[in-house]
Design a protein around this nucleic acid. Structure first.
Lengths: 252, 252
DNA sequence: GAGTGTAGAGCGAGCGCTCGCTCGGTTTTT
DNA sequence: AAAAACCGAGCGAGCGCTCGCTCTACACTC
């Protein structure tokens, strides 16, 4: 039934993930003093990973450049050949995830129908946040420290994701696949369920809940709400409209 | 149907809210140089409010004590008569919300039955987070900067709230009021819906969604999942068990 | 293949600045 | 006039960032 599973998603991501740092390097090359691409890529990758790691433990603001220097083993001077400033490092980190998101979540043409599209969008988002967990956590937690321009961009992409979900719901309402009262609010609530996966990871790790189990429960939760009819038992099949209950809107 | 609404909740809170700062003052009196309680309370209240305001805009770490001094109009020296250190200020802020939570969310004895209890717990949490929004936002965003002891306490209270929800669900499963597959995971997911209200406030404010509208939608969302049967129309009445559908667990 | 010039990459002590916090003196209250 | 509260210049530590220098790899000369 699902349009994609985690295993296949990982394989698809593995194909372009090494190119991510290269893309970031090229976007910011005018600010980077290191000339040779092949020399730069490994260390840039190390810098970005380490910066995310330290920032997610003590906050970007609290991470001193000396901390980063010690953790990467790259001297202060050399570090500043890769970044033009601490804020520039933040820009590169954000670019890293933005590029990944752009490459990962576009819905392919062969996925048609509201329910399939919703399934695809939600799963892609969850799976990507699993692969790039440190980045998603960082982007959420540090967003309010961004410059106004960057913050508005972050808010915009949050709203974009929501509208993507809401549009699926509206499309489903129109086709009869779904029956949900407020697609706008529903989109917001569904997004918060996706977010919990990377915001509260410690909780799920402690309980041995993996991304597939989480995704499964979330999809059930959502479908219980948006489908016109349902049975709470997992593995159900009712997707046709014939089994819908004719609910009485006017009842007190 | 609901055990409590926002209006009544506010009235109840208004009765003890002025006593909150007094409680915080007394808990930390040994660290406060200002002797006279009546002199101290107003300024302590101002300090806590302003600190929350600045912290929520630029982060607790980035808020300098000079910022706080200028914003409150209290000189550096006088400020340090109310707080023993910046970390001490953080302790007082956390105490403020902890006391409020303790006073606000205990379930009264007259609320019986799983569905009523769940309703009461969720609404109380949502309403309290509306009244103390700056505190809830602060507690979530700054938790990772706490000392290990404080962080474990925060994690504990997060898990406590979840277990409260999960227990309602389990109780409801046992009594037949609910039929939810994984009460533990469900508790976590439901909590994330409550959290979205204070984490993404800008979004809901922009859409003119108030706390009652949000609460209503969330409660519908949740009940669509946990109730054994449902109708998507708002204002429905089916709460008795006679209308339950006998769902077939084994169906493919 | 040994010697040499050079550009790229790396290094870390030190600069100017802001931070949390203090303390001797002043104003207000009782 | 004593006690309580308030004030803000000044302290050492730590911050982001720089800059004069060294090290390394490789093309070129003889």
């Amino acid at each position: 039934m699902p349009e994609v599973d985690y295993q296949r998603f990982r394989e698809r991501v593995a194909a372009w993930q090494p190119e991510l740092v290269r893309e970031v390097f090229r976007q910011h090359q005018h600010l980077i003093r290191v000339k040779k691409e092949e020399v730069a890529l490994d260390r840039l990758d190390l810098i970005l990973r380490t910066a995310l790691d330290i920032s997610n433990r003590k906050g970007f603001k609290s991470m001193s450049v000396r901390d980063l220097s010690e953790a990467t083993g790259i001297s202060m001077g050399a570090l500043y050949a890769y970044i033009d400033s601490k804020d520039g490092l933040l820009d590169m980190i954000m670019a890293y995830g933005s590029v990944a998101a752009r490459w990962a979540v576009q819905v392919p043409d062969q996925v048609v129908g509201a329910r399939s599209r919703l399934d695809w969008v939600l799963r892609s988002h969850l799976y990507l946040s699993e692969v790039l967990l440190p980045w998603f956590f960082f982007a959420f937690m540090e967003a309010r420290h961004f410059s106004q321009r960057a913050r508005e961009q972050a808010m915009g992409s949050e709203l974009w994701m929501e509208r993507l979900i809401s549009e699926c719901l509206e499309e489903g309402n129109a086709s009869g696949e779904f029956a949900v009262a407020r697609p706008d609010l529903a989109g917001a609530l569904i997004k918060s369920l996706l977010q919990d996966w990377y915001l509260k990871r410690w909780k799920y790790r402690r309980r041995n809940v993996d991304v597939e189990a989480y995704t499964g429960t979330v999809m059930e939760f959502i479908e219980a709400w948006v489908l016109p009819d349902r049975s709470t038992a997992p593995g159900r099949v009712q997707t046709d409209q014939s089994s819908r209950v004719n609910h009485e809107k006017g009842s007190v």
